[in-house]
Design a protein around this nucleic acid. Structure first.
Length: 327
DNA sequence: AACGTGTTCAACCGCGAGGTG
DNA sequence: TCACCTCGCGGTTGAACACGT
């Protein structure tokens, strides 16, 4: 695999950025878009490598960055998503508007990780350190399935977000810029339901539309090979999996839970954030089961997930409806 | 005030994925 | 198919800062 020469080899500047450099980079990108990072420094009159410029832009100069302290909601989101996704900071960052993956990573390493350790929670597994893993194996496997799907969705969202941003800056600079950027929406890779053969503009609208729908068919669950039909509803909204009639699968639950969460928080992540929502959705299921006690496998699934997810939520937020800080 | 220690976070590094010719 | 290139990600580093003695 080829590798770009490092800054040292090119004799380029390293280390902290000066205000002058920031200004040059900012002015250039606002005027032309970033285009190829590789060629940007020369065009912008910077003695930096493209990588350094990209990092400075994405982590510091970008106008849509929120700086300063993380609030409680953000902290909870990070912890909960970390429990599902591990150190996949870019995926986590897609659910924290205006926060960069670097910032989240730093915050986790310097604050949240230590707090969990203090609370006796393993920051890697998100389980109490004295808990035996045996009792959780089935639940862990279930959560793992959910995490796989959520991971896939987050990756897709991250791509959409990136492409959407690219489009934004590209269009902003369109009167000046002719880098030949071609927007290849993820939606063109997948089967687009409402309008195929979209123009870029239409695609962008679709990307940003809260009601855009992408349908999948014959999706295979990674570890089991079970097929299902799946639908994304909204650009950053819930994963709604519609199960195949013959398959009794996790998808059903996510779909139902998403319906429960409607109007409260967005999608599966909203489910995670809104412990109350989750509680209501599961307890509703439980109530239904108590009144209509059949379908044992399904019951076990709901019970297992409720217990396991509750265990995660209880670690981080013992009283979801209460806004009292937990740390 | 001076020093040592701990903490923070911007920036760097190396790697892998994906695109292209 | 392969080599090369660009980009983005996650882990790590180290300068700057905060705090305690």
């Amino acid at each position: 695999m080829g590798r770009s020469p490092c800054c040292d080899k090119l004799g380029l500047k390293k280390g902290p950025w000066t205000p002058e450099e920031d200004q040059k980079l900012l002015a250039y990108i606002e005027e032309h878009g970033h285009g190829s990072w590789r060629s940007l420094p020369e065009k912008a009159g910077l003695h930096r490598c493209g990588k350094s410029c990209r990092l400075r832009w994405t982590n510091y100069l970008r106008p849509d960055i929120k700086r300063g302290k993380f609030n409680l909601q953000e902290e909870q989101t990070i912890i909960q998503l970390h429990a599902l996704l591990g150190n996949r900071w870019s995926a986590i960052a897609t659910h924290l508007p205006k926060r960069t993956d670097n910032e989240i990573k730093n915050y986790w390493n310097t604050h949240l990780k230590k707090r969990l350790v203090k609370m006796g929670i393993d920051p890697v597994t998100h389980k109490p350190k004295n808990e035996t893993p045996l009792g959780l194996s089935k639940n862990a496997a279930t959560l793992s399935h959910m995490a796989q799907w959520e991971s896939a969705r987050l990756e897709a969202e991250a791509r959409l977000a990136r492409e959407s941003k690219l489009l934004h800056y590209q269009s902003k600079a369109s009167s000046h810029n002719h880098h030949g950027f071609t927007h290849k929406s993820l939606l063109t890779t997948w089967t687009t339901k409402p309008n195929q053969g979209n123009t870029d503009q239409q695609q962008q609208q679709q990307l940003e539309s809260p009601t855009s729908t992408v349908s999948f068919s014959d999706i295979k669950e990674p570890s089991t090979g079970i097929s299902a039909k799946m639908e994304f509803v909204g650009s950053s909204t819930g994963l709604a999996l519609i199960k195949e009639p013959e398959n009794d699968w996790i998808s059903t639950t996510i779909f139902e839970a998403t319906q429960m969460a409607e109007g409260v928080e967005e999608g599966f992540t909203g489910l995670l954030l809104g412990g109350d929502t989750l509680g209501r959705s599961f307890s509703t299921d439980k109530n239904e089961r108590e009144g209509n006690n059949n379908d044992g496998e399904c019951n076990n699934y709901f019970e297992d997930n409720k217990n396991y997810l509750d265990s995660i939520f209880n670690f981080v937020d013992p009283s979801p409806s209460d806004s009292t800080p937990i740390f």
